[in-house]
Write a protein that binds this DNA or RNA. Structure first.
Length: 283
DNA sequence: ATGGGGGCCTGCCGGC
DNA sequence: TGCCGGCAGGCCCCCA
């Protein structure tokens, strides 16, 4: 489910209860999610202090005092719930366990973090911190879209000659890491580029425009997540998914929001995924 | 190498 | 109310 902005929002929500804290007890309720958990995961987590909580693409990385790093991927339906330590509110009971609560981390500050994932497309793994970036899930990722190495010359080089639609190219985590279906649709709408356009056929100006637009779309979504987080980590302590208003995503049949356009948002399927777009604005 | 399709899982929503 | 098909924001793997 979550794309880069949602994962970043979750990471920021976890920082106050995890960073610098010791995992006093880890409970693992099943063998694994998408892949088996690493051997002895609960024991390797218990007693470890989280020294830093980082993000790479859609992965959360918790560096531990044991010189291991815990990799967390939320898949499509993964959620992190915080209980036992609410913002200024008197509250220290934990809610009853729910279906699909797969991993539970109790922290020394009194917080409990529960990883719930109905579809089990998520993942957790442990690896030495020193070689974290060579983890198979991370080693071939493209650059961070908000980082310095993601720029126009880079993107132009990666799209050059590619016959795949720009929609698919931007979803390719090897080209740029962290975009998913929603933000690719939103990016192409803002860039006024039709999703069917062959990546290699984009004009230079279009490629140049994509870089700042991708940055803007993601930054705005993180900002929206950050602001909703303040009111969002309450009642059930669920982190993460803010209501965000999209310009085209999931708006099939609704009017294009561009003033005076008057067209209707369309939907096509590309590589098995829905692309939402304005057939008039996007060329 | 590249591009396309299948598969993994469960939950939800709309139509009948 | 229930059943059923279709769909979901991710990612890996296999095939041509």
């Amino acid at each position: 489910m979550p794309e880069l902005p949602e994962v970043e929002t979750v990471r920021r929500g976890l920082v106050p209860v995890m960073e610098g804290r010791v995992i006093t007890q880890a409970a693992v309720n099943r063998e694994g999610l998408r892949w088996p958990f690493p051997a002895g995961m609960a024991g390797r987590l218990s007693g470890a202090r989280v020294t830093a909580l980082r993000r790479r693409s859609k992965y959360i990385l918790a560096d531990l005092s044991t010189d291991e790093t815990l990799l967390i991927h939320l898949g499509m339906s993964g959620r992190m719930l915080i209980s036992g330590q609410m913002l200024g509110t008197f509250h220290h009971d934990h809610p009853a366990p729910k279906k699909h609560d797969h991993v539970v981390l109790d922290m020394d500050g009194g917080a409990r973090i529960t990883f719930n994932d109905a579809r089990r497309f998520g993942a957790m793994d442990l690896m030495p911190t020193a070689t974290a970036e060579s983890h198979p899930l991370l080693s071939s990722l493209g650059p961070e879209p908000l980082g310095n190495t993601f720029d126009e010359p880079y993107l132009a080089a990666r799209l050059k000659g590619r016959n795949t639609p720009i929609k698919s190219a931007l979803l390719d985590q090897h080209i740029v890491a962290g975009l998913g279906n929603i933000y690719v649709c939103e990016t192409l709408y803002r860039a006024r580029i039709a999703p069917q356009t062959k990546a290699g056929n984009l004009r230079a100006g279009q490629v140049a425009a994509l870089v700042p637009i991708i940055r803007e779309v993601l930054a705005e979504a993180i900002e929206a997540g950050g602001s909703s987080l303040r009111d969002f980590r309450q009642a059930d302590g669920e982190l993460g998914y803010f209501q965000h208003s999209f310009q085209v995503y999931d708006r099939e049949g609704k009017p294009c929001v561009t003033l005076g356009c008057g067209a209707t948002v369309g939907r096509i399927v590309q590589s098995g995924r829905s692309s939402f777009y304005c057939p008039v604005c996007q060329r």
